[in-house]
Design a protein around this nucleic acid. Structure first.
Length: 308
DNA sequence: ACTATTTCCTGGATGC
DNA sequence: TGCATCCAGGAAATAG
């Protein structure tokens, strides 16, 4: 299940492969679509756009799109001529701060395509001749001749577009948040700290795996009430979250279930999970068997001796 | 304003 | 072997 490190890995992989490419057209599956925005709106916002950047925000993948017919003012090399060839490593341009210029055209000039992979979603760069996988819900045809396909068996994934303003996933980025902001997030909260870590409106991007791993590293039980944590414990947790996420990103994420990155490569951070999915295995620190409890419908793994 | 619970969805694992 | 049942879980919706 893609959480922050997996989504980061995927977004980076996609950025390498499709930045500078132009979306020619979009096919969206019928039926109960996993779409947050209406299909027509998505297609209209995407078609004719150039992919200027791909980035991650929380667990969302955000494609920054600009009008592909009218190259923006920034000197972006030779962007004007039709289809960018595959692998044009356009310099990762800074986030566009709202294009103030030329806003007189009737069509949308700038948009963000936002993809949430849910549990089992995948975004694959394919050759048109590749067999279309079961549960393919969207196919984006690119000017380079390739296709970007959204496949999601369990349909928890979501596609949407933002055509005015900037997408905001809510919450703060765990990798950026400073200690004071972090401490403030949990003040007065009666929920289990584990549940608070999963709340995307507080901290965005942490999911079940990394919540458990962070709490283990910080020596805190998942069932502790968020507000009961001492400042010292919060410092440890703040540190632990950043460490575990960074290490996981370095390892290419955790391949559990069917996660693979944009190139179909598996991550291997799951090998370094210390508690997640290790019920009754010995704690790596003290050998006490790892326990599993269910909190808010989520399984939570911890060492009863190391975590208080 | 919060918190807790239910719902969505399918493939894989388990059990009889 | 085959069928039914359970389980995983992110986030939105609903209820308290």
């Amino acid at each position: 299940m893609p959480e922050l490190p997996e989504v980061e890995t995927i977004a980076r992989g996609l950025a390498k492969r499709v930045t500078g490419d132009v979306i020619e057209d979009v096919w969206l599956g019928e039926k109960p679509e996993p779409l947050k925005s209406p299909a027509k709106e998505i297609a209209a916002a995407l078609e004719g756009k150039k992919i200027e950047a791909v980035r991650r925000e929380g667990k969302h993948i955000v494609f920054e799109l600009v009008d592909g017919r009218a190259p923006e003012a920034h000197a972006m090399g030779r962007a004007g001529i039709g289809a960018a060839r595959a692998g044009t490593p356009a310099p990762t341009s800074k986030r566009p701060l709202r294009t103030g210029a030329n806003t007189t055209k009737s069509s949308i000039e700038r948009a963000q395509w936002v993809v949430h992979l849910g549990m089992t979603g995948r975004l694959q760069v394919c050759d048109p001749s590749d067999e279309v996988a079961k549960h393919t819900h969207a196919i984006v045809r690119l000017a380079s001749g390739r296709e970007l396909r959204f496949v999601d068996p369990r349909r928890f994934g979501r596609l949407s577009v933002v055509t005015s303003g900037d997408f905001d996933a809510g919450g703060v980025e765990p990798l950026d948040v400073d200690l004071e902001r972090f401490v403030e997030l949990f003040r007065g909260r009666k929920v289990f700290i584990k549940s608070a870590l999963l709340n995307q409106k507080l901290l965005r991007g942490v999911g079940n795996i990394y919540a458990d791993e962070s709490l283990f590293r910080a020596g805190i039980r998942p069932r502790r009430r968020a507000a009961s944590l001492t400042r010292e414990e919060l410092m440890k947790l703040h540190r632990a979250i950043k460490d575990v996420l960074r290490e996981a990103i370095k390892a290419g994420g955790s391949s559990i279930s069917d996660y693979v990155d944009a190139n179909g490569e598996e991550g291997f951070f799951q090998l370094r999970h210390r508690v997640y999915g290790r019920e009754s295995e010995p704690c790596p620190k003290c050998k006490t068997p790892i326990k599993r409890v269910v909190l808010g419908g989520r399984s939570s793994h911890y060492c009863p001796k190391c975590q208080r």
